[in-house]
Amino acid sequence: MQSREEPTHEVKEARRAFYTRLDARNTTPLWEVMSGLVTREPASKCLPAIWHYETVRPLLMEAGALITAKEAERRVIVLENPGIRGVSQITQSLYAGLQLILPGEVAPSHRHAASALRFVIEGEGAYTAVDGERTRMHPGDFILTPSWTFHDHGNEGSEPVVWLDGLDVPIVNLFDSSFAEPYGEESQPLSRQEGDALARFGANLLPVEYRSGSLSAPTFCYPYERTREALAWLAAHGPVDDVHGVKMQYVNPASGGYPMPTIGAFVQWLPKGFTGAPVRATDSTVFCAVEGRGTTTIGGQSFDWGPRDVFVAPSWLPVSHRAETDSVLFSFSDRPAQKALGLWRETR
């Protein structure tokens, strides 16, 4: 490779003066910044990280004693990626947090441009209501709140309920397209029978190899009981992939595509002793362990996980899973948005 000729002192000074004049007019020379703008491979500032539930849960309960769900509007501890602290993001495109609602509380109804998912971590007796339809929450359930739909949460049970929130807030804010609006009352009136969407759409999963396009989803819940049954059936009747184990994609029943235009969600079963081959993809992925114990290696760093732990794999870092016991992992990423823009890549 031919080496670049070192400019003379006079040329360096002339360039420095020129760049100063450019800066005064809010311009900059592309040749000085191109290597950082157009990288040969993804170069995320995000870092691999894990949040062990046993260490975060006491902080959630402390928050429950310090502020009510009504005062906070949403009592959430945000999971901030250590590489980009201060911006309330777990990846460059996604927000994630753990939300707590205590017995007898209601998180007031509001709506916003960002789409949201809820993955229930702990507890029984809570519900989420979206545009007049209420859905009961059970551990392992995956529940959608589509963009610009009024939603509130309540806990009519006797124990704390915690779920993982995933939102596309960073994508919405990238486009400067954020809107939000309170409903005006704490709870919205119910206009549909509870569970109507569940009865209409069933489990709504597909084997991950049958990926397709994406449209916005209607309001519904993917119950973990049916999800687990689908995983067990596939594990018994199909091959176990050497990278993902048995992996399924949550789908929009109306289109067969992703449940939200910007966020895809997946669930996978890893049999005891499974040691997966590495894979890397351009979509940074947030994982939550549902069952079992294991280790995931991300970019050379190993993270031991157990039930309810959350961890993140940034873009284009090699990821491989090892299962100590039969295990289930839930995950979500911005894959639909990347696919819609023709950007998504994956390599084994």
Rank of each mutant, 00 (worst) to 15 (best):
S3R: 15
R4V: 15
E6S: 11
P7E: 01
H9Y: 13
K12L: 15
E13R: 13
T20H: 13
A24L: 10
N26H: 13
G36R: 06
T39A: 11
A43M: 12
A43L: 08
A43V: 06
S44H: 10
P48N: 04
Y53Q: 01
T55W: 07
L59Y: 07
L60K: 01
L66Y: 07
I67Q: 06
E73K: 14
L79P: 01
R85D: 03
G86V: 01
S88F: 01
I90N: 03
S93P: 04
L94C: 02
I101S: 02
L102S: 10
P103Q: 03
H112C: 11
A113C: 06
R118G: 03
R118W: 02
F119D: 05
E122K: 04
G123T: 05
E124D: 10
T128A: 07
A129M: 08
D131F: 02
G132M: 08
E133L: 06
H138D: 13
F142S: 12
T145I: 10
T145A: 06
S147F: 01
W148R: 11
H151Q: 02
G154Q: 00
G157F: 03
E159I: 02
P160T: 04
L167W: 02
I171Q: 10
N173E: 13
D176I: 00
S177K: 09
P182A: 12
G184T: 03
E185S: 12
S187Q: 12
S187K: 11
L190R: 03
E194Y: 00
A199I: 09
F201H: 11
N204M: 14
L205V: 15
E209W: 09
Y210V: 09
R211E: 14
L215F: 09
Y222S: 13
R226K: 15
R226Y: 11
E229I: 03
E229Q: 15
A230H: 11
H237T: 14
G238L: 08
P239H: 13
V240L: 05
D241H: 05
D242M: 14
M248T: 03
Y250T: 04
G256M: 04
I263M: 11
I263P: 03
G264D: 06
V267G: 09
P271T: 01
A277D: 13
P278H: 04
T282H: 05
S284W: 00
R293K: 14
I298V: 15
S302Y: 02
D304E: 14
V310Y: 01
F311Y: 11
L317Q: 14
A323G: 03
A323Q: 02
S327Q: 08
S333D: 15
S333Q: 09
R335C: 09
A337D: 12
Q338H: 06
A340R: 11
R345G: 11
T347H: 14
